[in-house]
């Protein structure tokens, strides 16, 4: 029981990861795929932030009377990863806009039919 409750943040990570990945694979709507991708990426952000936590640690800012600090490095890494994630999402959405303009739809199966009925 302690194993389950004590690692609850990791369970959240795993659930989010699977939800995200499943959405990417199963949805035919291109925007929903991007949402799934975002959830998938966010789960990894949670994973990193969880890794950086030190039990009883304060925020990593030097202050009087504080002896234990959390590890700031994973947070910094994940700031970079968030930026990358935002850029990816922006690019993906831009592509979806262009797909909508040229195909008139953002459903994967309809796009497939349009490409193969020629």
């Amino acid at each position: 029981m302690d194993f389950i409750i004590g690692h609850y943040n990791y369970w959240v990570v795993i659930v989010l990861m699977m939800v995200g990945l499943y959405t990417v694979i199963s949805r035919g709507n291109l925007v929903k795929k991007i949402i799934g991708l975002n959830i998938f990426q966010v789960s990894v952000f949670f994973l990193y932030i969880s890794l950086g936590t030190v039990e009883g640690g304060a925020a990593p800012i030097i202050a009087e009377g504080v002896k234990v600090y959390s590890n700031p490095l994973p947070h910094v890494l994940i700031l970079t990863a968030i930026v990358v994630g935002v850029a990816t999402t922006a690019l993906a959405l831009a592509l979806v806009v262009r797909i909508k303009e040229t195909y008139g739809t953002i459903e994967e199966d309809e796009i497939h039919n349009l490409d193969h009925s020629l």
Binding site: L21, V24, L30, K33, L37, F40, Q41, V44, L47, Y48, L51, P74, L77, A81, V84, T88, L91, A92, L95, V96, R98, I99, T102, Y103, I111, D115
Partner: peptide, 26 residues
């Protein structure tokens, strides 16, 4: 116009690949 769809497809798969790498590094 297939350039957009193939770029999108690559983006999805490439991002999944990169994120897997990120999980591994973590």
């Amino acid at each position: 116009r297939q350039a957009f769809t193939s770029s999108y497809q690559y983006l999805i798969m490439g991002t999944i690949g990169a994120t897997f790498y990120l999980i591994g590094v973590g």
